[in-house]
Design a protein around this nucleic acid. Structure first.
Length: 423
RNA sequence: GGAGGGGUGGGUGAGUGGUUGAAACCGCCGGUCUUGAAAACCGGAAAGCGCAAGCUUCGCGGGUUCGAAUCCCGCCCCCUCCGCCA
């Protein structure tokens, strides 16, 4: 959520930012509700003060043996008036937060203005796409041919957009998870977390998936539980409603979880293969930090995700998302895109964002800069380190051989029991 | 799922209708003393909104009342016992 005070004082800056994000919402209703809220607040508070004082004197009169009937009557009228105004105040506040919670975060100044992914500048590129002396296959052919991915049986078990991993495929998925977690905990200083894979609506509000993006989620009926669309939700909400000690910061968490997304609205997109599944594994990175350090942390977080690809010898590039392509809660995002020979294209494998105070305000994540100081909102960041399914398919496509086998990247072999090749 | 008990400030915990935003203790911060520290003593400090006056907050929501941490109703969470289960 945006800072209401900032919106009040900088309406034109906010409108420009929203327009750059491809949202032409008018601030007019927000401003009207904001003004009305402040009027009501002043009036209600004044009436409450009157009632408090009057009630107190009634108590004193009773003790003094006087008849308080008339005073009671007067105070009751004040009380009725308060009830009426409070009702209106609640309505106005509800509408105000409803409107404000549909606004995305404001982009950082360094974010390029643009409409779509076409406008995302390439920030850096690593590695050379391998040249093949044969026609490289897509993983949706390689996987089934090697007998390590079964799309058809998954359809029988559940439906479209699910996959069954078999044998060396299942092992490879597990090896990647372990490889990534070991690197982030052992070398990058993250604390490993194993969170619940279901969260309540309040947590999803905290990170910004609710109320706007409910249709993207799987809900567990009849509870107020949802399957997590990313570990960002449980990890970030770990410190909701808390005041952290500045000495604890930055806090860095990593977690492996499966992620569940309904993919509503992406019919016909990436229908083949592992790219877009309803369930996929991901190793997530989440940081809690101070406003002063958050952009520095974003660079670090991104480099941690990149390191995984370097070790796996997978060519990639980093793009800076333009204003029109950023996610809801992000102020700045780097996407890491891995080279896929089967598609002859770079495809997203990680997305690293600084959410500044946007989630912290919703989830009430604060820290105290020094003893006795007022709590300030922390900054939260998150990134994939990495999407495991997409990493697996990138390995299949990049390390495929002319005979249809796949060489296992050296760094991964210890995690594969020494296996050097699949097929 | 059934029965019972409980949710108060950083922690423990008092408070069952009135000036209690909340005792006490522990912890924390500052000071005195000390070469320094400890101990002792003195003092300070909850959070949110607001320029401020002030208002709100004792799990959450509603109700009773002139007035609710305190009474009533609903919900959530925790603990104990039983049932079930990995």
């Amino acid at each position: 959520m945006l800072d209401p005070t900032f919106v009040r004082e900088n309406p034109e800056a906010v409108e420009t930012a929203l327009r750059n994000r491809g949202m032409d919402a008018s601030l007019e209703p927000v401003q009207a509700h904001d003004r009305r809220r402040r009027e009501l607040l002043v009036e209600v508070e004044d009436l409450r003060r009157q009632r408090k004082e009057a009630s107190k004197s009634i108590g004193e009169r009773i003790k003094a043996g006087e008849d308080p009937a008339k005073a009671k009557d007067e105070v009751r009228q004040i009380g009725d008036r308060i009830t009426t105004l409070e009702q209106e105040l609640n309505d106005v506040e509800q509408q105000l937060t409803d409107q404000l919670s549909t606004f995305p975060n404001l982009p950082d100044e360094s974010v390029p203005v643009g409409k779509s992914e076409e406008d995302n500048p390439v920030t850096r590129t690593w590695g050379e796409p391998r040249s093949f002396d044969f026609e490289p296959k897509a993983h949706w052919d390689l996987g089934p041919e090697l007998g390590i991915i079964d799309f058809e049986r998954a359809t029988k078990l559940t439906g479209a957009r699910f996959a069954v991993m078999m044998g060396a495929g299942a092992r490879l998925e597990r090896a990647l998870i372990q490889f990534m977690l070991d690197m982030h905990t052992g070398e990058h200083g993250y604390t490993e977390v194993l969170p619940p894979f279901m969260v309540n609506g309040n947590s999803l509000y905290g990170t910004g998936q609710l109320p706007k993006f409910e249709e993207d989620l799987f809900k567990v009926h009849p509870h107020d539980f949802y399957l997590i669309p990313t570990a960002e939700v449980p990890l970030t909400n770990l410190h909701s409603d808390e005041i952290l000690d500045v000495e604890q910061l930055p806090i860095s968490y990593t977690a492996y979880t499966p992620c569940f997304r309904s993919e509503a609205g992406s019919y016909g997109k990436d229908v083949r293969g592992l790219i877009r599944q309803h369930q996929f594994d991901k190793v997530e990175l989440v940081h809690f930090t101070t406003p002063e350090q958050s952009y520095e942390q974003l660079e670090k977080l991104t480099s941690h995700a990149e390191e995984v690809l370097k070790r796996l010898e997978l060519p990639y590039r980093v793009v800076t998302l333009c204003t029109g392509d950023m996610g809801f809660g992000a102020a700045k995002t780097y996407d890491i895109e891995v080279w896929l020979p089967g598609q002859q294209a770079y495809r997203e494998i990680s997305s690293c964002s600084n959410c500044t105070d946007f989630q912290a305000r919703r989830a009430k994540i604060r820290y105290r800069a020094e003893k006795g100081a007022k709590p300030r909102l922390a900054h939260t960041l998150n990134g994939s380190g990495l999407a495991v399914g997409r990493t697996l398919l990138a390995i299949l496509e990049n390390f495929q051989q002319a005979d249809g086998s796949v060489v296992i990247p050296e760094a991964l072999r210890p995690y594969m029991g020494g296996m050097e090749r699949i097929g």
